[in-house]
């Protein structure tokens, strides 16, 4: 059961978290650094593979599963908030 939770967190949680993070990163790159949209989107998606790998390995390696859950949840929430805030900006 514990193994199942850990695997689900790594694969599903990791994917959702990564998607949120790269969305926020891409928006920040466009809004604040002035990167072109297509560049920001491509760069974000490519970074996604690295971030996802890191999250997966971390959630398999970390003894206290709750710590990964909380951190990942917090970062995901923060990223989604950023995405919402930045999408209100007039583009």
């Amino acid at each position: 059961m514990k193994i199942f939770a850990r695997t689900a967190l790594a694969i599903v949680g990791g994917y959702v978290g990564t998607s949120a993070i790269i969305a926020a990163l891409a928006m920040i790159a466009v809004a604040m650094v002035g990167m072109e949209r297509s560049e920001a989107a491509t760069l974000g998606a490519m970074l996604g593979f690295v971030i996802y790998l890191g999250v997966m390995i971390w959630s398999f390696a970390e003894p206290a599963l709750i710590r990964v859950t909380l951190w990942l949840g917090a970062v995901t929430a923060l990223s989604l908030t950023l995405v919402l805030l930045l999408s209100r900006l007039p583009s």
Binding site: A23, A26, R37, S38, A41, L43, G48, F49
Partner: peptide, 28 residues
């Protein structure tokens, strides 16, 4: 994986293009 980046991690494209995702192909 990177070949299919837009399939596997579309969220960064959705984020910066919002509704008009097809615009990504045109701009990129």
């Amino acid at each position: 994986l990177v070949i299919l980046f837009s399939l596997y991690f579309p969220s960064s494209i959705w984020a910066v293009y919002r509704q008009d995702v097809r615009l990504f192909g045109r701009e990129a």
